[in-house]
Design a protein around this nucleic acid. Structure first.
Length: 483
RNA sequence: GGCCCGUUGGUCAAGCGGUUAAGACUCCGGCCUCUCACGCCGGCGACGGGAGUUCGAUUCUCCCACGGGUCACCA
């Protein structure tokens, strides 16, 4: 059995759609779990779409998530070049080989004739399909036109009757009537191959054994099948994967803002979490675990767990997976990621940022949530006195005011401004007063943060903002409650 | 419209003729707790519809509905 070789063949659009990334992932997994090669081929033949720096986006994204290729434009390999535009010259001879074999033919129909045909058929309410006008031109006629320099394309000669069956690993055998198939163009007037043709030739020349691609190619698969047969080449194993949707009707697209890998990075997701989540979109592992590293996916992946129906991207689930990854991070690592986000709203430099990070880790689903959670540190937000009232804590305006008045002197007298020091002082007060913790600590939290929920409680917040701010904010609270 | 593919809770999905129809996310309770979150425990919630085949269909067949894909000298 030949070594497994899969490929990822993106167009450089400057944008890595997560559906494409997932296709790359699956291709990578299939290759790696058989000890095969994963090949990167850049399909840049659509010059109109060329975007500066776009191949770098592809390289970077793939490297970021660890999908390292064994052969590609930057590192070369035995079957290069790996940039399609550099392979353009070689296709015509393969098409001519097909003409020799009687599997393809020269077509001299010009645009006018084709447009006319199209209009005519449309007028009759029929769908356009090339009428094979040039299919049976005699050798002499062809030669005469060629000698005269008439522009031409080369078209594939489809069977006029019978059926074609191709096999997809997921969908099984799919059979269609040959009558449905158009004599598709292989070589364009400019001598360049069409995508469908270049793709087949390239895959064959590169020894690709498993083709993983989007479901949109399912309809053209019979044509591919016929092309391979016309050449007498071995047909690769096909695995068509479904699209990722925004909802039941719409594919996830650029404008949704969740569609590209970069979008997700910008939104504060971890690259490992993104890779993990997209693997789960349209694929189910055997067991109940859902958290997998790339290496674990290599072992766990099985194409038979792939779904044949489109999957909807669920931002909530993506967040949940991300949260799990964040929780599993080493605290130092988390701090490394979190500190820049903390600093977005915490500009003062006298606070223990590492400590804040430690409080944040269990509460962070995506990093972009962080700035809002710690914005009270620099300055106390405006808040309503109603915030002091909490039924479960049994606090109200009156006892909150009393609590703050009780706390103030204790805090004033405290010199050991550490977590333990503050904790001991406050709990000493609580014990002395013989009240429940919440009676004292809830009003304190509100006075210090202006929020009902904060990372950490009154003790932690007091420590973070420091003694001066603590006293100032308690006084502010007392004033507000007395007003 | 023709052709191809698909359809299990709100979402991702397990299931491959006989199951109390998994699990995860969401949501709702409870516990923990100075809040929130985490964590733990529990709960709500599904086989698109109709005919067959069968002793028995979520599983097999057909029809319908719905959804997706595709019908270029684009890739």
């Amino acid at each position: 059995m030949n070594k497994v070789r899969t490929r990822f063949a993106p167009s450089p659009t400057g944008y890595m759609h997560i559906g494409n990334l997932r296709t790359a992932l699956f291709a990578y997994l299939i290759a790696k779990q058989q000890g095969g090669d994963f090949i990167l081929r850049i399909e840049d033949t659509d010059q109109g779409r060329y975007v500066e720096g776009a191949t770098e986006v592809i390289y970077k994204t793939l490297k970021d998530v660890g999908l390292n290729w064994d052969e590609g434009p930057d590192i070369g390999g035995p079957v290069g070049p790996y940039i399609q535009s550099e392979r353009m010259g070689m296709f015509k001879k393969y098409a001519e080989e097909l003409v020799e074999k009687g599997e393809a033919y020269y077509c001299f129909c010009d645009k006018e004739r084709l447009d006319g045909l199209k209009a005519e058929l449309e007028a009759q309410g029929k769908t356009y399909s090339y009428d094979r006008h040039c299919r049976d031109l005699s050798k002499e006629e062809v030669k005469a036109k060629l000698d005269a320099g008439t522009p031409y394309v080369i078209r594939q000669k489809m069977p006029t009757e019978g059926q074609v069956t191709f096999h997809d690993e997921l969908y099984g055998d799919i059979t269609v009537d040959c009558a449905e198939l158009e004599d598709q163009i292989l070589i364009k007037t400019d001598g360049m191959p069409t995508y469908n043709f270049a793709n087949v030739v390239d895959d064959h020349l590169m020894g690709i054994t498993h083709v993983v691609r989007g479901n949109e190619y399912l309809s053209s698969a019979p044509k591919y099948e016929l092309l391979y047969k016309a050449f007498g080449w071995e047909v690769p194993t096909y695995i068509h994967v479904e699209h990722i949707m925004k909802d039941k009707q719409h594919k996830l697209s650029k404008r949704d803002g969740d569609a590209s890998f970069q979008d997700l990075m910008d939104k504060g997701y971890l690259k490992e979490a993104v890779l993990n989540y997209i693997a789960l979109l349209g694929w189910a592992p055997k067991g109940e675990n859902e958290i997998y590293s790339l290496d674990e996916l290599v072992n766990e992946f099985d194409i038979h767990g792939l779904s044949k129906a489109p999957a909807i991207f669920d931002p909530l689930k993506m967040k949940a997976i991300n949260a799990k990854y964040i929780k599993a991070l080493e605290p130092e690592k988390f701090a490394e990621y979190a500190v820049p986000y903390i600093k977005q709203s915490v500009k003062r430099t006298d606070v223990d940022v590492k400590y804040i990070a430690s409080l944040l880790q269990a509460r962070t689903e995506v990093f972009t949530d962080i700035p809002e959670m710690v914005d009270f540190i620099d300055s106390l937000p405006e808040y309503d006195n109603e915030m002091y009232c909490h039924k479960k804590m049994k606090t109200n305006l009156e006892n909150s005011l009393q609590a703050l008045k009780d706390v103030l002197p204790v805090m004033q007298a405290l010199d050991d401004w550490s977590i333990d020091g503050i904790h001991n002082a406050l709990f000493g007060l609580i014990e002395k007063l013989g009240v429940k913790n919440g009676i004292i600590l809830w009003p304190l939290r509100v006075a210090l943060s202006g929020k009902q929920s904060t990372p950490g409680g009154g003790v932690e917040i007091a420590y973070i903002i420091g003694k001066d701010d603590t006293l100032a904010r308690i006084n502010k609270g007392i004033e507000k409650l007395q007003a």
